[in-house]
Design a binder for these strands. Sequence first.
DNA 1: ATGAAAGCGCTAACAC
DNA 2: GTGTTAGCGCTTTCAT
Lengths: 350, 350
Amino acid sequence: MATMHDVARLARVSVSTVSYVLTGTRPISEATRTKVLAAMAELDYQPNAMARGLATRRSRIVGLLMPMDERGLGATETAFVTGAAAAASVAGYHLVLSPVGAADVDDLRRLATQRMLDGVVLMEVQVEDGRVAALQEAGLPVVLIGRTADTTGLPFVDIDFDQTVREAVAHVVGLGHRRIVYVNHSAAALAAGYGPAVRTRDAFFSAMTGHGLEPVMIPAEDSAAGGRAALSAAIERAPDLTAVLAMNENAIFGILGELAVRRRVVPDDVSVVSMVTSPQVAELAHPALTAMTSPGAALGRIAVEALLRQLDGAGGETHQQLLPCKLEIRGSTCPTRKQHELTGSGPPGS
Amino acid sequence: MATMHDVARLARVSVSTVSYVLTGTRPISEATRTKVLAAMAELDYQPNAMARGLATRRSRIVGLLMPMDERGLGATETAFVTGAAAAASVAGYHLVLSPVGAADVDDLRRLATQRMLDGVVLMEVQVEDGRVAALQEAGLPVVLIGRTADTTGLPFVDIDFDQTVREAVAHVVGLGHRRIVYVNHSAAALAAGYGPAVRTRDAFFSAMTGHGLEPVMIPAEDSAAGGRAALSAAIERAPDLTAVLAMNENAIFGILGELAVRRRVVPDDVSVVSMVTSPQVAELAHPALTAMTSPGAALGRIAVEALLRQLDGAGGETHQQLLPCKLEIRGSTCPTRKQHELTGSGPPGS
DNA sequence: ATGAAAGCGCTAACAC
DNA sequence: GTGTTAGCGCTTTCAT
């Protein structure tokens, strides 16, 4: 492995000259620059990342911190990861994946003080999240995917859950539905203050109330079985329901299965909207799901870009951004029967 | 940020002594050890990872290299990633995620010579994969998830596709099925020499031939639409098919949808087996899918562990391991009608 | 059992 | 425009 000394010797210049053509932090004559470049090519030289990191106190590594307790990531979280990795790679940064749950604050503190990471993106943020304080104490720049209750001075990117829920509710209300149930994440997630769960809950209550309707929310475990149970509970609480909104990526398939078992046809008997979903997942169901499509990889990308901007000194304002989900109407929603009669349009799917 | 010097001064010992209590590479008297430990605690000392990396020429970072071209990762690949991240974390290593496709050999070469990575795990390996040679030239230890055509001296962990296909075929043949179609990955994946695609193809041909049956394979794009198209093609080639095996995680939902449209009931009319699938995904379908359950996170974990063992000198034999998928019978397969008559058991689902 | 000091490969003053 | 050199914070000989 060639070092900078080797390059300098071969090009008959000093090491600092080599360093400067590399970093471009001071003018170099065209003649020597080419000499040096030639020597580098000749020796297949690549600067040693550790040495550079030690000297500059910048590793060019950023962390992506997320809990990996449960049964792996959903499609949405996976998209965050791939988006973040791609963005880091494009900028010449490395992205390390660190499983750091909200409980492992000590691990995090250790990680932060190792000075291996220039900054971190924190995923699966909870409304009260000790990790944020730990990172700030360590002086490690951070951008959140999600957000805490108090976001003053904290850069974050998040899904606009308020808009998402509002549009989803407006969509089904516009189709004539009145009896609408929202299947949220689990009670445990709600209790832990998991952002998407609590924010959609609040947004659902306010949206429904705004339409003069009664909000009915059912929490569900994140699995097909959880969805089944939730639908049963939903029908118990609102036997006349005609629309279900579901946040829970896996649960929604359980909901569909249970509806089938109960001989309720989607969308004729019950309309279903999947919230914060990737198009691919929406297409897996039959009929394909009307869904609020999540910004997916964009969220991860934007978070990393904001972090890198912060690292590169800019010192501009703290990046705070809410990304909307986009309503994509597919086959799982349709007007209520009553609505049909009013508008005179024929019943769907027949 | 406290350095080793600070600790040494506070403990009234030399820096080397501090270093030795840290690394344990030479005996230290109990008295000084406690003094040093106390000083470390007092100062909240954490060794600087870059400095240590430069001095030892070991970064304690391993890379997870995977292409991220297409529309993100499937559930199976995601499990590899989380398994790898967890294993690395447990061993005190960091895991960097690098999007390096089979095409980006130059990027890879650059990455490898930066000396930032102690070793790498290579995912989505193709039968002929230039990345392997590039890594070996760079002298970077590597473990494959998947394998190339020639694996001599190459450590790898892979799914035992032969066993997987054989068991799946045996399962449906045992249920009386004779007309069996295999829906593989896309024609492009096959042409590119994507391991899972070519190996299952070969295994399917040999398994079917072994049973005296005609192998019918249909490639499919990795999407619900791809699955629909594949099933249509399948029915055209084998109108009398009674069983479908599908490799393609997303396509399988398209297959189910198309079967529903054609009024072919699963499993009564057509049995369906999902190959190399996670239990969660299998549970999403209705009825839940009989599946060959993939080793998932275990694969990622084992790959990282093998890599770390290789780094820690051991110099033992090269780790080569094939992990089986496990047949989990759910609701999407059942005996053929003819088989029913023979065994006298009642028709299912009625 | 402990200390002193020479690197590890690079960057960035500080000279000229 | 270029060279010299002192670190960056650690590990690891070589002494004692």
